[in-house]
Computed example of a mutant assay.
Amino acid sequence: MAKTIFITGASRGLGRIWAEAFLSEGDQVIVAVRNTDSLQALVEKYPSHLLVLKLDVTDKKAAFEAIKTAKAHFGKIDVLINNAGYGHFGAIEELNEQEIREQFETNVFGLLWLTQAVIPIMREQNSGHIIQVSSALGLVAFPTLGIYSASKFAVEAISESLSSEVSGFGIKVTIVEPNGYLTEFNTSSGVQSEPISLYDGVRTALNESNHLEDWGVPEATAEAMLKLVNSENPPLRLILGKAGLQWIKYTYAERMKTWEEWQDVSIAAHGK
């Protein structure tokens, strides 16, 4: 059955690929983006199935209005995909206050505003699926990507809590956790802090460990997203990419090892 899907950050990259995949399947798609110019060809190809809205997700009032406009246009919203976001590169000492706030304004607060706006609609429908695009780096953290990871760790916590809060209303929640893909994430769409030369060695080590095979093919994610939005029982978490899966398995095994080594201290700290 065709669905009505609202997706942010779909003017390029993974979001654009997913929007095209949904449209090709006959779904109705609302694309909310900062720059609408790049979507003209899609509008001409799918004039009755695509609604393009200009939106800066950090604008709370505009986010609520966009959801309202989408509901009025198509009559329902079955799926919300919070995909808008970007990566900020910089060691913790290199980050300035404005950079930190902007990273959270987009990756966390923008996601929150759209989530809050769509819940009443889905609650009234007694159905809906909220898909929050996190990252493999929302479960593990790499050097010089700490503030990006922090924003995605926040998305993980918000979304896990949300899933329990809204399940009684027929609303499902999935956190999508891609590893790196060959998009513009670490080039034109990313932001770099003013570097401090003392951290050049850290950057070099990270780059040297960054192998081409660790980066996924963006188009390969489309089938996974189609399966996800059409699943009757979608998972709370879905990792995209084999590299991310290995990072996460290794990191959680190491965490368990440490916790178990220190469990006597942990238990004693309980006090009774």
Rank of each mutant, 00 (worst) to 15 (best):
Ala2Thr: 15
Ile7Leu: 15
Ser11Arg: 12
Arg12Cys: 06
Gly13Gln: 14
Gly13Ser: 13
Leu14Asp: 01
Trp18Gly: 03
Asp27Ser: 13
Ile30Lys: 11
Ala41Lys: 11
Ser48Cys: 07
Leu53Tyr: 11
Ile67Asn: 06
Asp78Ser: 06
Asn82Lys: 11
Gly90Trp: 02
Gly90Asp: 01
Ile92Met: 08
Glu93Asn: 03
Gln98Met: 00
Gln98Ser: 00
Gln98Ala: 00
Gln103Tyr: 00
Phe104Leu: 14
Thr106Arg: 07
Thr106Phe: 04
Leu112Trp: 05
Trp113Gln: 01
Pro120Glu: 05
Ile121Trp: 11
Gly128Ala: 00
Ala136Pro: 03
Phe142Thr: 09
Thr144Ser: 13
Gly146Phe: 11
Ile147Gly: 07
Ser149Pro: 02
Ala150Val: 02
Ser151Glu: 02
Lys152Asn: 03
Ala154Tyr: 02
Ala154Pro: 00
Ser163Arg: 08
Ser167Cys: 09
Ser167Ile: 09
Ile171Ser: 04
Tyr181Trp: 01
Leu182Asp: 15
Thr183Met: 07
Gln192Glu: 14
Gln192Lys: 15
Arg203Tyr: 10
Thr204Phe: 10
Ala205Val: 14
His211Pro: 12
Leu212Arg: 15
Leu212Ile: 15
Glu213Asp: 15
Val217Thr: 09
Glu223Cys: 06
Ala224Trp: 00
Val229Phe: 02
Asn230Lys: 00
Asn230Ser: 03
Pro235Asp: 05
Leu236Gly: 07
Arg237Ile: 00
Ile239Ser: 05
Leu240Trp: 04
Lys242Thr: 13
Trp247Cys: 01
Ile248Met: 09
Ala253Pro: 01
Met256Phe: 09
Thr258Ser: 13
Trp259Val: 11
Glu261Lys: 15
Asp264Glu: 15
Val265Cys: 06
Ile267Val: 10
Ala268Ser: 12
Gly271Leu: 03
